[in-house]
Every structure is written in structure tokens, then in C-alpha cells.
Design a protein around this nucleic acid. Structure first.
Lengths: 260, 260
DNA sequence: CAGTGGTCTAGACCACACT
DNA sequence: GTGTGGTCTAGACCACTGC
């Protein structure tokens, strides 16, 4: 079957037209269709998706084409393949990839420490988006957002102080109790309770001096150098769904990054 | 051709043995062979490697198997595919991926600013490795290393102060003049002059306060919060070839990271 | 055992670059 | 046109999982 696809719902590339400005391989189109099902929640985080053979039949392409589509989705961590079992929708709740976005690790031992030992939710309220938050989350100034402030401690030492801003519409009902009670990654909570799966994120990192409030909450002298980490996290389709601003103590931890 | 391969120089997996502890797909073995040629310098950075068809003939496998091997090498940035032209050994000298490892970007505009506007090499001498440097570079304490200290400026503002430590054996003859004169990425210089290609790196990031010396060289008040960035860069085969410790001003720039 | 993903092949055809 | 990488297919077989 040539790349001039017989699929009904796809925008057919002009095979005989005067110009072929946008050529898209079949497997990319299949990837797009699978992505749509993922977004639509046809298969939820942690669940199996249909086998390659089933998907091939459904989309009327060969297994190899479906395979290549899934290969890319797996490379982007949207899906996880398990030989002999099937392909699963990725989730932040899994043991192996928990705290995938947390790059702060203890100086001694490169173990990821399995997340913070304690969490202290200082605040969780609905507020109106400031201009900055609105811009980050692609909302309008004044739209409702949920703001969470919390302190994460490792081994009894308060290490991270952060504010989270979430779109009010998608996170209606999020409470401080809920945030505090949930064991495991915050992003797993978001998947379970609000059906929002964070797929990728961007961080901007700076060095700053602790102000009085930060110093008090992190139990360091005012003026102590801290890492300022701004994160914008996205769901499917590059839709921003969380803006986060944190300050990290780096006297016993460091931010670890791999370049390749 | 089944995966019980007929290739002479490969360690044949025990097909009928009592145990098959290590099974390695054919394409992985081919990848390993290509990697060996890359390391051995059979094809140098920027050059084309043989076509898929040629490699398939050489290794006595199908083109598809070679393709999958090259796919992985391309995913690891060791090689770059160019449709219609061939597959090329990756290099830091290329226009498109220059300063791939430099994550510091100006706050305004996400342009990568095409590297530092000016470079000031303060020092370049052969010294004996301290315990720390020796450990990082997998040398013995006291082994010869080349130490380089320099200041990088963006738009006239000194922004990065860093020390580089390089194994003395591989970098014999590196001079301050050479470092200062070369236009373009330092890693491109290393490829050209010393045949050392950096393939990946790890960074550890902290916030520190500028000491007197750092403050003077970066033209900031003593005590200014700075980003401390420790980098260990590797060549082929996970051999560490550079240890770097830098301090970054983050008043007009930030360290940008993508999480996925 | 059957079902899943994983590997390997061989061949056809497409898109792109050079000449 | 020729040669390169890129796509797509169909079929065979391998490795892992669970019934």
C-alpha cells in the first residue's frame, strides 16, 4: 500500500496535484491517530493499548507501520512496551519512572531517593492568574487558577520550596488535604484525580539569594544561594498545564543533568 | 538469516547450549562493529560513512538490519543521516548543532546566541591531577593533565568563568594561543587537533556565592549567587575525557533544560 | 499452548541530491 | 539518470509471558 493512503479521515496528500507541499509518512499519520486516542482517554494511564496486529487491522496498514508509529511514541515516553505482555500507556505512578522530572539528587550516592520523605502543603487556593501565570498557561489574566505552595523535605531537611499554578478549569476541587494525603508523585495524583497526564516539561534555572520568607521556610540564613527552578509542564498536544516555581537548597543535593 | 549469526568475528550466542545468558540481536552487533570503526577513526567527524547497502554487504546482513543499527547511532547523536546524500559522522563543528552542550541562554529570546561573543584564556598549563580530577578522569593522582582557565563573555558581559581539565596524554601540545585563536566550539577544536570527539556529558548544578576571585573576574559583587556547573564529558565507549567546573552569572541568562 | 512484542529478511517504491 | 536515505509491505521466526 503506497503512502497515498486509503484512510477515510486523514487529509489526503495531493498525489497528482501541482504541488506536494506537505508530505507525511503513513506511520506519522498512524502515530497521530494513536495520539488522538490517547488524548481522548480511550486507553488510560497504566492500561494496555491494542496489540500491533489489532491496530494494523484497524488502520488498514501493515504491522511494521504500526510498529514504527509506536516506536516513536515509546521514544517520547508516552507509551511503554513490554515484551510478551503488550504496550501500555505510560504513567507517573509506575515504580520505575517515578519522579522522572525531579532532577535534584543527593550528593552522596546517585540514588534518586524515591522522592521526598515528607511534604508540607502550606497553601492551596483558587486565585486569579497574574499576567505572568496567565501567559505561561495560555490563559487570560484574571482567569481562575489553583495555587499550591509546599515544602518538600529529604531526610528531615526542608530542601524544596515551591509554588504550583494549575488551570482552574481542569483542577476544580483540588484541596490541600488531597495534596498532603497522596503518597507518591504529584503527577500521579493529577492523572488519577483529574485525568491530566504531564508529558514533557521545560525548566529555566538560575541562582538567587534566599529572601527572608524563603530562608525561614528552608531553615537557612537569609542570603543563602539557592537554585531557582521555573518549570512549565505540558500535557498531550503541547498544552501547558502547570507552571511551577521552586527554590532548591543545594548544600547536600545537586541538580543532575545528562547531555547528549 | 536467523540471529544465530554466521559472522566470523562475532561472539556466537550459544544456540544449543544449556543456557543462553546473553542474547544480543544482530543489529546490536552490527552497531557495535560500526562503533568500533568510528572509534578507530576509519571515518572521521564530518565524513560520510559507507552507504547502507555497502555496509550490509560488508557485514553480510540485510539493509534493514544495518538501518536499525544506524538508527540507534543517529538517536545517540553519533551519526547524522541526510536523505539523498548519505550518513555522516557527527561533529561539533557543524553549524546546526554547535554548542550543543551549552545550556545557558539569554533571558530575552530563546536564540542560542551562537556561542560566546568573546573568549579570554587566562591560563593553560600542564599540572598534576589532584585526587578529585584524577577520580573524575579515571587517572591516577599526580598524572599529567592540562588545565585551562577562561572567561566567556556575551555581549561584552563576562558571564562564564570556567576551568577545564584534560588528560595530558591525549591533549599534548594544547596551548593558550590555540584555545584563544580558534573560532567556534572548543569541542570542534578538540576534534580537529586531537582527534577527541565528545559524545555525551553529565552535569551537576548548584547555587553558590561568588568568592573574591570569581567576583572580580565576572565583574559582580562578592557574594553574588552564581550557578556552579560541574561537567564530565565522555568520548566513545564512556571514556571520560574532560572535567569542567564553571560558574555562570544568571542575571541576564538562565540554564535551560528540557525534560521528557 | 497461544498471544505479545522483537528481529530479520527481501523487495518495491518514494523523496531527495548531485551531476 | 544514478545513488542515497526513507517508507511500506509481507512473511518467517525468535523471545518472553501467562494460561
Amino acid at each position: 500500500m503506497p503512502s497515498t493512503l486509503p484512510l477515510p479521515e486523514l487529509p489526503s496528500p495531493d498525489t497528482g496535484g501541482p504541488a506536494t507541499p506537505a508530505f507525511s509518512p503513513l506511520y506519522q499519520q498512524i502515530k497521530g491517530l494513536i495520539l488522538q486516542s490517547l488524548q481522548a482517554g480511550e486507553w488510560k494511564p497504566g492500561e494496555v493499548i491494542p496489540s500491533e496486529i489489532e491496530l494494523a487491522a484497524r488502520f488498514r496498514v501493515s504491522q511494521g507501520t504500526v510498529r514504527k508509529a509506536i516506536d516513536e511514541l515509546a521514544a517520547e515516553n508516552l507509551v511503554v512496551r513490554r515484551q510478551g505482555k503488550g504496550t501500555f500507556v505510560a504513567t507517573h505512578a509506575e515504580q520505575h519512572v517515578r519522579y522522572r522530572f525531579l532532577k535534584l539528587v543527593p550528593d552522596s550516592g546517585d540514588r534518586d531517593s524515591e522522592g521526598p520523605a515528607s511534604r508540607d502543603v502550606l497553601e492551596c487556593r483558587r486565585v486569579r492568574a497574574t499576567a505572568e501565570v496567565a501567559r505561561a498557561l495560555a490563559l487570560r489574566s484574571g482567569d481562575a487558577v489553583v495555587q499550591v505552595r509546599r515544602v518538600l523535605a529529604f531526610g528531615g531537611v526542608p530542601t524544596i520550596l515551591e509554588d504550583l499554578w494549575l488551570p482552574g478549569a481542569a483542577f476544580r476541587g483540588l484541596s490541600a488535604e488531597q495534596m498532603a494525603a497522596y503518597q507518591g508523585p504529584t503527577y500521579a495524583l493529577f492523572e488519577l484525580e483529574f485525568g491530566v497526564r504531564m508529558v514533557r516539561a521545560e525548566e529555566k534555572i538560575r541562582a538567587i539569594a534566599a529572601d527572608a520568607a524563603q530562608a525561614a521556610l528552608l531553615a537557612v540564613p537569609e542570603g543563602t544561594p539557592l537554585l531557582s527552578v521555573e518549570r512549565l509542564a505540558y500535557t498531550y498536544n503541547d498544552v501547558p498545564m502547570e507552571f511551577r516555581r521552586g527554590v532548591y537548597r543545594t548544600d547536600a543535593h545537586h541538580y543532575r543533568n545528562e547531555l547528549s
